[in-house]
């Protein structure tokens, strides 16, 4: 399977829990309204007068494979050169640098056997899940984060962003990051559907998967864990 292509619109392999949940909450009568919400993020009133916010599912998400990653961090500059016109690791929307030496958990007395280049060499990159209910978007007080009309990626509108950092604090994965130089939030925008980090990975450790597959890879399938609810609120 060619996993590097984005899933065509409307061809997600299975309907997502977000949609199911929405339909359950809103009732079948709002099915027509759902179509209107296929792109972007829309709020509705339920029959009993409650507000519900609907996010169109992203076309896909980027997944990083720690067994293939060589820690070169070309993904990070591929990201920031394309999207910010500068090289940076802090604001890269794929996060490898921060885990490079000591893994996600950081320094420990057992560092020599723990993840990271100073341990067992395992390099764990973290990517934006393009969550069904993105905590970043939910937290943004000015509505600067919405689903991109083409890709469904949760993107920051820099004109609206006030750099308050609510998204950065809300994201459970620490992906959204306010650029200290511009005071604007940065988060993965999927580069219009052709992510530059994926193209520039020299070992094929980063892949762009249709959302349902990405979700399964990031959270696993089966068991009791609901991948979608595992992602965010």
């Amino acid at each position: 399977m060619d996993t590097t292509k984005s899933a065509p619109e409307g061809e997600s392999k299975r309907s997502t829990s977000s949609r199911r949940e929405f339909l359950r909450l809103a009732g079948a009568g709002l099915a027509g309204a759902f179509a209107a919400a296929a792109f972007g993020c829309v709020s509705f009133d339920t029959r009993d007068g409650k507000k519900v916010k609907v996010w169109a599912t992203s076309s896909g998400a980027i997944v990083h494979d720690p067994s293939r990653c060589v820690g070169c961090r070309r993904c990070e500059t591929a990201c920031t050169v394309r999207n910010d016109g500068k090289g940076s690791s802090y604001i890269s929307r794929i996060k490898v640098s921060r885990n490079l030496n000591y893994g996600v958990a950081g320094v420990s007395a057992a560092y020599a056997r723990a993840d990271g280049q100073l341990g067992n060499f395992r390099v764990v990159g973290e990517t934006c899940r393009q969550c069904s209910h993105p905590a970043c978007g939910e937290a943004c007080p000015v509505g600067a984060i919405s689903a991109d009309k083409t890709t469904g990626a949760r993107v920051v509108d820099a004109r609206k962003c006030v750099g308050c950092g609510a998204c950065q604090r809300a994201c459970p994965w620490g992906i959204a990051t306010v650029d200290p130089e511009t005071e604007k939030s940065t988060k993965c925008l999927l580069c219009g559907g052709d992510p530059n980090c994926v193209k520039n990975c020299p070992t094929g450790a980063i892949k762009f998967y249709p959302w349902a597959e990405a979700e399964a890879l990031l959270f696993g399938t089966g068991g009791t864990a609901d991948a979608v609810s595992g992602a965010t609120a």
């Binding site: 591929a78 920031t80 050169v81 394309r82 999207n83 910010d84 016109g85 500068k86 090289g87 940076s88 690791s89 802090y90 604001i91 200290p180 130089e181 530059n196 520039n200």
Partner: peptide, 19 residues
């Protein structure tokens, strides 16, 4: 430890093409 950047004079696509 650095949270800043190295700025590039050219347009991103120019550097990306050369890369």
């Amino acid at each position: 430890k650095g949270t800043g950047s190295v700025k590039i004079a050219a347009k991103p696509e120019e550097l990306m093409a050369l890369d």
